[in-house]
Design a protein around this nucleic acid. Structure first.
Ligand SMILES: [Zn+2]
Length: 230
DNA sequence: TGTGCCGGGAA
DNA sequence: TTCCCGGCACA
């Protein structure tokens, strides 16, 4: 029921003085919008940073990024706990929460301070990304794909939604079956039966067959990629 | 020849 | 439901 919290990405690692493991290549990304998040940064608000595991039915919350990385690496990815050569895959499976302690009592008074529409970093399927960061290493994309399931839905029940759970949100061909239609003719009107299929790189090409665990669920199941949408 | 993914199908 | 794959249209 923590409402006043923002989530964003783990950038690089260790914003806490915790034990930190040196990352290989990727230093940071998404800084621009992270800076914007510094509004009310006048030190009045006391926020606590937490790290929440996004694995399907885990939801574990830890207070340090390194701890979370270790959790994901060992529990979910089944890797050695002390394998410093983490290719950053864990970053993808957890998110950082800024739990605003004050907002808990504040209620809804200061809710939705930022635009409720698309308050997520757009750096995800970065074909249009302004050529920033992201070394030639593994381009671990960023989570949160602005859940497209309910555009005009009520705000608040919009969970993080990573790649997991290949939920096919698109289900239009069954809307208002008119009762005055005893003999429904075969529906075949679309003029564009086959899309030219955009040649954007999808999980398979991006990560390669040797990193199939990093593909989005859909790609793994040979379905339409839901991480790098066209 | 490799990629994206629809349409199945197994567990 | 989750997960996998045959097979086909593209590139
Ligand atoms: Zn994908």
């Amino acid at each position: 029921m923590i409402m006043g919290m923002r989530l964003r990405l783990e950038i690089g690692n260790s914003e806490h003085g915790d034990e930190e493991e040196d990352e290989v290549g990727m230093g940071m990304r998404l800084e621009m919008w992270q800076v914007m998040d510094m509004r009310v940064g006048t030190g009045i608000n006391s926020t606590k940073v937490m790290f929440k595991c996004l694995w399907k039915s885990c939801g574990k919350v830890l207070s340090s990024s390194s701890g979370m990385q270790k959790h994901i690496r060992t529990v979910h990815l089944g890797r050695k706990a002390d394998l410093e050569q983490s290719d950053g895959e864990e970053d993808f499976y957890y998110t950082e929460l800024d739990v605003d302690v004050d907002a808990l009592t504040d209620g809804l008074s200061s809710l939705t301070p930022v635009s409720p529409t698309s308050s997520v970093p757009p750096a995800f399927p970065g074909p249009e990304a302004p050529t920033l960061l992201l070394p030639p290493a593994l381009p671990i994309p960023d989570l949160a794909l602005a859940s497209p399931c309910s555009p005009p839905g009520p705000p608040g029940r919009c969970h993080v939604h990573t790649d997991h759970a290949y939920q096919d949100c698109r289900t239009p061909p069954r809307p208002p079956l008119s009762p005055s239609s005893p003999t429904p003719p075969p529906p075949k009107p679309p003029a564009v039966p086959r899309r030219p299929r955009g040649d954007a790189k999808k999980c398979r090409k991006v990560y390669g067959m040797e990193h199939r665990e990093m593909w989005c669920t859909a790609c793994r199941w040979k379905k339409a990629c839901q991480r790098f949408l066209d």
